[in-house]
Design a protein around this nucleic acid. Structure first.
Lengths: 230, 230
DNA sequence: TTCATACTTCGATGATAATCGAAGCATTCG
DNA sequence: CGAATGCTTCGATTATCATCGAAGTATGAA
């Protein structure tokens, strides 16, 4: 046997379609019950129970009991990052599944990607910040500029709190539906929270879709207008 | 079926012990023959051939024929990054395999991690650059400072070439043997190349270990001295 | 207390994939 | 040209794992 990290175990955990579906469902950022995850994966409760045990034993999921309900969530941000990386890679390589029916426009428009905004709105937001010189991109890296720092404070983002965190303020994350990047990192999370706190947006039931109210959508589009075509 | 990136396919490719061993062997940064990879994975040539076909079809490996030899390498840097991420994650979660015999000190001291220096020397290099203010760490992000930029030019690193590349100049990469970070990114690759070009270091046969000559080791330690304990 | 619901465990079944011996093909060497 | 080497393909075997019906446990509601 060889020495070093055993990526086969992680790969095998993620490599089953049912488990992958459950992990993907949990990328919505919220805890889900065993029954909900069984539905998301299209398997029976018994099968789901078995899979969830494996994911928990493997350290990818954390369980929390509440009465007779068992809630599962991704263990931590590192698991979210790992899955983001795999999703981005899969999207880049063409490993994409398509639903036979009409594609879900709500998910394309705005959705949660673990803890930040993805979809058309997420991509638009990053594009505009780059265009305005608020975010500087170097390769896949992203850094908030000085003017970006001020802009975020104006929007009510607690930049001191973000800087005191261990994880990066800005990260890019490949958006599989738009095939371009949106903003991740602690700033990405903070902005999504802000939109929800402002009442501009809310989660859509159990879906990962984010629903913007008409007022909220206007406010968002005013903040992050689509660049002119010319 | 659901829409979106299919991480199960990628996970399944990596999730077989034999395939994972071959991918890990290729993280040494050089192309290997099918026979070498069979040996690295501890399986027969027939089994290896089958697995290599799958990895190639899945876009993780690229094949190059030379006479009757078939050379395989990781498809591109993105695959290297993905595997690095998985290795770092696995190491963090305790998914580590240990060889029953004595651990290989040469691999711990200095080795290749896809295209940059890992091991004690790799970690020491990053530590010293941070201590001297040449690299700034924020979370898992790393950025070269102004003084670091000048220092690297003094060492003969073509910083303009690095900046013109699409990928980040600096990245941290978790070192599973030292359990701390070493320097990855285009600068990490450039520095390793420099050490080899200077004759300070060379690859050790088929192993991933990097062998420093006595002269090279002194030069390296002069450049990146271990911080005093006080 | 009984009934309903959420979930786990057991055991059987079936599908999938890894494995390797044998045979074959392609390339190189003597 | 024949032998050797690197590698692929074929087919049989075996192991592994996902699946679900049935039964059981824990919790909450009536």
């Amino acid at each position: 046997m060889k020495e070093g990290p055993d990526i086969a175990q992680i790969g095998a955990l993620i490599g089953d379609p049912a488990r992958a579906n459950m992990l993907t469902a949990l990328m919505g950022g919220r805890a889900l019950t065993a029954t909900e995850l069984a539905g998301a994966a299209g398997i029976t409760l018994q099968t789901a129970s078995s899979h969830l045990s494996k994911l928990e034993a493997g350290g990818l999921l954390a369980q929390r009991k509440q009465g007779r309900h068992r809630y599962f969530a991704l263990m931590d941000d590192e698991v979210g990052l790992l899955l983001e990386g795999l999703m981005g890679f899969a999207a880049n390589r063409g490993f994409l599944r398509a639903r036979p029916g009409p594609k879900d426009p709500a998910l394309r428009k705005a959705r949660v990607c673990y803890n930040h905004l993805a979809g058309d709105f997420g991509v638009r937001m990053l594009d505009r910040m780059v265009l305005d010189g608020h975010v500087a991109i170097e390769g896949d890296d992203a850094a908030l500029t000085k003017s970006g720092e001020e802009r975020m404070r104006q929007l009510g983002i607690d930049m001191d709190a973000l800087h005191s965190q261990r994880r990066p303020v800005c990260r890019t994350c490949l958006d599989w539906s738009e095939r371009r990047s949106h903003l991740a990192g602690s700033l990405g999370e903070a902005l999504l929270s802000r939109f929800i706190d402002e009442g501009w947006a809310r989660r859509s039931g159990e879906s990962r879709a984010i629903h913007f109210t008409p007022t909220g959508e206007r406010a968002f589009c005013d903040l992050f207008p689509v660049p002119d075509r010319e």
